[in-house]
Design a protein around this nucleic acid. Sequence first.
DNA 1: GATCGCTTGGAAAGCGCTTTCCAGGTGTTT
DNA 2: AAACACCTGGAAAGCGCTTTCCAAGCGATC
Lengths: 354, 354
Amino acid sequence: MANPRSRTRPAHSAGVTLQQVAQHAGVSLATASRVLHGSGSRTVGEELRRRVEAAAEELRYVSNAPAQALARATSSVVGLIVHDVADPYFGAIAAGAMRAAREQRLMVMIAATFREPGLELAYLRGLRAQRARAVILAGSGTVDAEATAQLAEEIAGFEADGGRVVCVGERGPDLDTVAMANRTGGGLAVRGLWELGHRRIGVVSGPPELLTVRHRLDGARRALRGLGVPAAEDAIEAGDFTREGGRAAAVRLLRAHPDLTAVLVLNDVMAAGALGGLRDDLGLAVPDQVSVVGYDDVPFAADLRPALSTVRLPLEAAGAAAVGLLLEPRGDEPRRVDLPAELVLRASTAAPPD
Amino acid sequence: MANPRSRTRPAHSAGVTLQQVAQHAGVSLATASRVLHGSGSRTVGEELRRRVEAAAEELRYVSNAPAQALARATSSVVGLIVHDVADPYFGAIAAGAMRAAREQRLMVMIAATFREPGLELAYLRGLRAQRARAVILAGSGTVDAEATAQLAEEIAGFEADGGRVVCVGERGPDLDTVAMANRTGGGLAVRGLWELGHRRIGVVSGPPELLTVRHRLDGARRALRGLGVPAAEDAIEAGDFTREGGRAAAVRLLRAHPDLTAVLVLNDVMAAGALGGLRDDLGLAVPDQVSVVGYDDVPFAADLRPALSTVRLPLEAAGAAAVGLLLEPRGDEPRRVDLPAELVLRASTAAPPD
DNA sequence: GATCGCTTGGAAAGCGCTTTCCAGGTGTTT
DNA sequence: AAACACCTGGAAAGCGCTTTCCAAGCGATC
């Protein structure tokens, strides 16, 4: 009995080339190309056009993108480099980017560095090899000068080859970027807490080498200082940008500063951990004893209990904006899209206890 | 104005070809190719090898993947088609796949259908055009015969072109698949609830056309029937596979069947919504009045309050297994990897109220 | 009726790379 | 010392497509 998998297929279908389609239609290769992939400026007569289309359909022709890329010296793939696809922050950005990409009929090649330093560079190189038309650098920049310089060189090379690079989040002044309101948002959170009556505010921070963290922290600190909040400087604990990191850092923070009435956690994933740590490890009630504000407003933030107050960033819009940016012709000046942050107050914040 | 293709470029860095590297090293194109991309079987002398490598480095040569793909008639990209990257279920699978891909030095091209029916087909075609070496179909199959048949044909075409296809979750008997224990898991959940003492168990289900939903539901139903649980058949409400869908369906379910003491929600995202709906809309205490079990064990399940009891699926492992499968040569028989489900009891389940 | 300017189709030269086939040189065997 | 095998490097033929250039056909113009 015939194995269903080896079911015989019409001889056509496997590796059909444009040449074969042309032959089948009784036209030249050039004409077939013009009909099927033509840039439009050149027209083909109605009759031939029909014949070519019929032949393509009949033969089940599928164009060969690498061959096209080679001949055209440009492709329709864009790269997207993130730290971790499973992280909802990047998931949302990726979703936005992919939606936009679809509208432009672009394919997206995604790479996750899993926060391994050298990998971003390696992937950028890989994408360059693929002759991606553009790449979106979605992960946070770093404070490491060496790494930044290497990356800058690779980016320059990529652009010299005609590719476009767009960053989500600031990386450097001469790159096209979709800027997230990180500084502003940090200030927003602090001021929100202040308005609720909090005067002793701590911060659970992320890896200090990340630019994103630095900016958020910066905004928070500045606001704290501006408001004259005392002891602000040392009521900061850093941890990994993970649930566990947030949990541990929050516990450390409140052990060291039991008088804090509010804490700003620099990302929602950490905040989820912090919420757990405060309650389970420290027996603190949120928001009755301590208020907590997160950052990002990832989808599950509203599902946490208490529902997480947080600084909302338009993540999907950022992804979409990045794609928008890389479609525009490159300008003389680096382009920049600024996206706003917004403080969303939910149930994890309240007035401080008396 | 000059033709862009003939635009003069700086000798270094931009658009360096292997030919140029060879010239710079004083060797033939063939030798340079062997050194830089050689399959290893063919050796090049120490001296020339060094010279080529030095030249490549000096000229900042970056290989041209499309050209390689064309010449080799195979590429190093694999496609991954999901419903939604922002959904933690797919995020986890994607993360696992990407980790494995990295070890194999594969690039992954990702496509999100956003649950739009025809898009899966379109993307598969796109991936075929890209001459992807393989594609992973991570989204659930559907009960729609027409769509399934079209997909089958496209898959056959893809395979005829030499590509490999693997599914995460069952789609058909003659496809290589990483099978998730959907039926088993449904039973597991029901039995777990039974053992806690629940006798009136309802189900919040997902879109009935999804195979995944059907299988989970099937397992649950069978267990229910096996246990002799009455009224099981109609205590089922379906909703979208989203938070809102889960919320609405859960509310409907408990309005219609106020006597239920436990509900199984067929995915964690819906369960998050259900938790909210039961509490906020219906004033029901979980788990004191109603127990809730989810499905998938996505990362945030443990962060919900009450922490969600759920059926754990090894999502990352599934993604990795899929990549593993497509690296193996294609066998005569379709291959299959079965991944286990495990019931994780957390705080959203308890004995039923008296 | 010859000329011009269009439009439309085809021939052919690549795009950057892999790989087969050959040739020359070396070391080995008898 | 001749014959052989082997190793290493190069020339060249594609891979499937795009695009330039040219030629042919045709109605309009003078």
